[in-house]
Structure formats: structure tokens, C-alpha cells
């Protein structure tokens, strides 16, 4: 087999590709931020002294961790309009579905970190007059994040990769733009190769940032 590679035509599509990559980054960062906040709140619920909150937290996790991301996305995209008559945008739909999904994972990672922290940290903080909120937010969570950084990074990378699923509802991310170009030019090999390389490069930057953060944190340990 002698396939003749030719990337030159892609130059004409550089703006289309750039837009797709930007949309991917935009969606992923939004999901990352929302998922982390949601995960932290859920983790707080799961360690709460109130049984109701703990139950809400675990039901949530079991629900959203076990539904495939694609099913969740389709469910929000196709059933919400039927049930409520409201058709949300593709970005909003994908952002909500993936945030809910990744929130469950972030919650479990953070909860593991939180529970590994010595009881003495809670006691010293409470003895200083801090409320649960302050202890959690200023003392426990920052330490839990440091401890679970490798696992959090894994999940962040997962978020980037899952964001490509949004192409299935025609959110114009990198994959969707690639498909547009490929359908026009009939050259899927070059297009998907370039997209794969570019997405991997972005994720490598992300892991690089994570290692830098890990190094910075290591100085306090």
C-alpha cells in the first residue's frame, strides 16, 4: 500500500481547525472548572455529619458515574426539549452533561484525599474556632487537592477526551470541524492525523502544567 500523504490542502482550513481547537479547549475548561467545583461540593456532602446530605452525595455519584457520557449527552440533547419544550444550545448541553458526569469522578477522587487527611487537622482547626466551611475550604480541601493531584490530572485529561463526544450533537469542536473538512476534501487520513496530533499536544501541555504544580507543592512537604 502506498498512500500518498498530502497535508498542503489543510492550510486553507487553518481557521476552521483553529476554531475547532478553541471550541474544544473552551468546552473542556468549562467542564473542568464546573466538574471540580461540583466534585468538591459533593465530596463535602459525602463526608457531612448529616445523613441526608451523605445519601444525596452517594446517590448522585452512583447515578452519574455509571451512565455512559454519550448516553447522558443524548439524554440532555434529545429528551430535555421534549420534556420541557426548551431547546438549549449545543455548548450548554454538552457543558452541563459532561460537568455532571465528571463531577461524580472528581467527587470520588477528592473524597479519597479528604479522608486520608489526619483527624488532627480537623481538630486543630475546629479548636481555633473555624466553622465546617472554613475548615473544609481552607485546610482540608487544599491538602486533599495536593495529595490527589495525579488522579485529578488523569480525570482532567479524561474530560478533554470526552469533550470530543460533543461532536455527535454537532458542537463545532476539533473533531466535528475535522469531519467537515474530511467530508469536503475526501482526505480523512490527513485531517484526522493532524487533529489527533494537535489534541495530544494540548493534553501534553496540560500534563506539563500538572507536573509543574506537583513540583511546586512538593516544596511544602
Amino acid at each position: 500500500m502506498t498512500y500518498k500523504w498530502d497535508f498542503s490542502f489543510l492550510w486553507n482550513y487553518r481557521h476552521v481547525l483553529a476554531e475547532g481547537l478553541l471550541n474544544t479547549v473552551y468546552l473542556s475548561l468549562t467542564v473542568l472548572a464546573c466538574g471540580l467545583v461540583l466534585g468538591a461540593v459533593l465530596a463535602a456532602a459525602r463526608i457531612s455529619r448529616f445523613a441526608t446530605l451523605r445519601a444525596v452525595g452517594s446517590v448522585y455519584v452512583e447515578l452519574f458515574r455509571n451512565v455512559p457520557a454519550l448516553v447522558l449527552l443524548f439524554w440532555f440533547f434529545y429528551t430535555i426539549p421534549v420534556l420541557t419544550g426548551i431547546q438549549n444550545g449545543r455548548f450548554l448541553t454538552a457543558a452541563v452533561a459532561f460537568s455532571l458526569y465528571s463531577g461524580a469522578y472528581f467527587c470520588e477522587i477528592l473524597r479519597g484525599g479528604i479522608q486520608s487527611i489526619d483527624r488532627g487537622q480537623w481538630e486543630a482547626s475546629i479548636a481555633l474556632g473555624m466553622t465546617f466551611r472554613t475548615v473544609f475550604g481552607s485546610i482540608i480541601l487544599p491538602q486533599a487537592i495536593r495529595r490527589t493531584l495525579p488522579a485529578l490530572t488523569n480525570e482532567a485529561i479524561e474530560v478533554f477526551k470526552i469533550s470530543a463526544v460533543a461532536a455527535t450533537i454537532a458542537y463545532p469542536d476539533a473533531l466535528y470541524q475535522a469531519k467537515l473538512i474530511s467530508d469536503t476534501e475526501y482526505r480523512p487520513v490527513e485531517v484526522y492525523t493532524v487533529i489527533a496530533v494537535l489534541l495530544t499536544a494540548i493534553i501534553l501541555v496540560l500534563s506539563g502544567l500538572s507536573y509543574a504544580l506537583e513540583y511546586k507543592f512538593s516544596k511544602s512537604n
Binding site: G120, E123, A124, I126, A127, L128, G129, T131, I139, Q143
Partner: peptide
């Protein structure tokens, strides 16, 4: 919380905030 602000406690294990 108000009471604890006025009653300090020092523990055997120090319990400083490592971060």
C-alpha cells in the same frame, strides 16, 4: 465557634497545617 476562639488548645501531635 465563639467559645473556641476564646479557649486555645495545644495538642500532643502539634497538628500544624502542612500546606
Amino acid at each position: 465557634c465563639q467559645l473556641r476562639q476564646r479557649v486555645g488548645m495545644v495538642f500532643q501531635q502539634f497538628n500544624l497545617f502542612p500546606h
